[in-house]
Design a protein around this nucleic acid. Structure first.
Lengths: 230, 230
DNA sequence: TCTAACAGTGACCAATTAGTCATATCTGGA
DNA sequence: TCCAGATATGACTAATTGGTCACTGTTAGA
């Protein structure tokens, strides 16, 4: 199986010459891109290996030189998409001074990402479905999403009342992530495709105002929390 | 192809005798149930017709006496799940006197439905993915979701400022639907499976408070809306 | 009991697909 | 120019799958 740049150093000896190396990388990316397109058009399961290689204008055997199974490719794509989303979040949220501002910027980061990279939105949507199934591949798909939620928590933590329990912080991250992807998902049904962009931000205020209200209320009765468990 | 009760009258002549009729209905339901289970475990696309018939303990040929394709069955199941959800919404929301109460009841209806009928939640999740693809089957899957959003709008309409534009009502329905399914989807990742039930309602206040704030603000500058489009 | 009408069955065929491998092609250096 | 190392290829096999159909089993009434 072909090694990609990140993996080179793991191998002893000088490994590969310049051109061949780049050729392999280009082929690898062609496969990733073709798969992303096919997955977002036909769905992960309905897409065959040949669909991917044909779209990439490559021979079928080439696929197996880069990935041992379609699942491996799926997993790599989900990972990559989540990385991109997290990067967008960081870029967008830099310099936020308070919770409302941060929430607004995070919402905008999601909006931008999902609007400009619709294929990846659809991919992540499918990835989230995979997590709910029982096929033995849940672990591979879960990790990126756990990372994503953890990153959200980390970004929110500094702007949230110190008394907020970790579990509530988690909930807030889930609520934010769920609201954005869920709203977009239904907006794609109920609203015209071009209206979505202008719809996302006004709706964001629902979340921002709601979260603020929720947190300030939480702050008041922070320690009434223990009793609630019983 | 076997006819189900709702379709009997469409056929001329006395059609079927009592026992045989019931047997066909039972078989039909066995197929629906088996498919629901398989779909929620393996996913729609990865489930084969034989998976379904074997799970239902029926011969493969039987499947094709009841459905002409797997897609037809998928579509029927999604339709049925949406019907169930709408029913739960109506049952739960009856007698709500104001917007906040209604929102709370609607959230609870969703919580109950998705917690007690997890397979159907997963099914609807997959159905929503199908809508995003380009396989020519989007129409079949879209209808139930449009119905669902429309129903949400109808239920919200009486409790919303009269000045609220139809498009904003649509947005609100999308936001509600998206928030519920999205939050649950991420909560299943970030939180323990058993914590979800207790997590849904406190998070609901985010939405309720946010939506209220959003609407009262909208009411203030109701007609500043036209200018926003430019 | 006999029969017409319907429900259910699984062996079977054609088509699709995953995965392999001998071969062709390309690259950089001797 | 030639070679060694690496990449790409597509014909091939085995296995899976969708879909059919001649057959069996069941039912209700004559």
């Amino acid at each position: 199986m072909v090694l990609m740049p990140e993996q080179f150093e793991e191998k002893a000896r000088p490994v590969r010459k310049n051109r061949a190396q780049l050729r392999a990388v280009r082929t690898h990316n062609k496969l990733l891109n073709a798969a992303l397109m096919m997955f977002s058009e036909k769905g992960m399961d309905a897409t065959t290996v040949e669909d991917i290689t044909e779209r990439a204008d490559l021979g079928k055997g080439t696929f197996y030189r880069h990935f041992s199974t379609k699942e491996e490719l799926m997993s790599a794509l989900v990972q990559k998409a989540v990385d991109g989303l997290i990067e967008e979040m960081h870029k967008s949220a830099a310099g936020a001074g308070n919770l409302k501002t941060l929430l607004g910027k995070l919402l905008e980061a999601h909006k931008n990402f999902f609007n400009t990279r619709r294929e990846e939105f659809i991919l992540l949507f499918q990835g989230r479905v995979m997590l709910k199934l029982q096929r033995g591949m849940e672990e591979d798909f879960e990790q990126p999403f756990v990372l994503y939620l953890g990153e959200l928590e980390n970004m929110l933590a500094p702007f949230v009342p110190g008394s907020l329990s970790p579990i509530k912080l988690k909930r807030l991250a889930c609520a934010l992530a769920g609201f954005v992807s869920g709203f977009l998902s239904f907006a794609m049904i109920g609203l015209g495709a071009n209206e979505i962009d202008s719809n996302m931000m006004p709706m964001g205020t629902i979340f921002i105002e709601g979260a603020s209200a929720f947190l300030s209320e939480t702050e008041k009765n922070a320690d009434a929390d223990q009793t609630a468990k019983a």
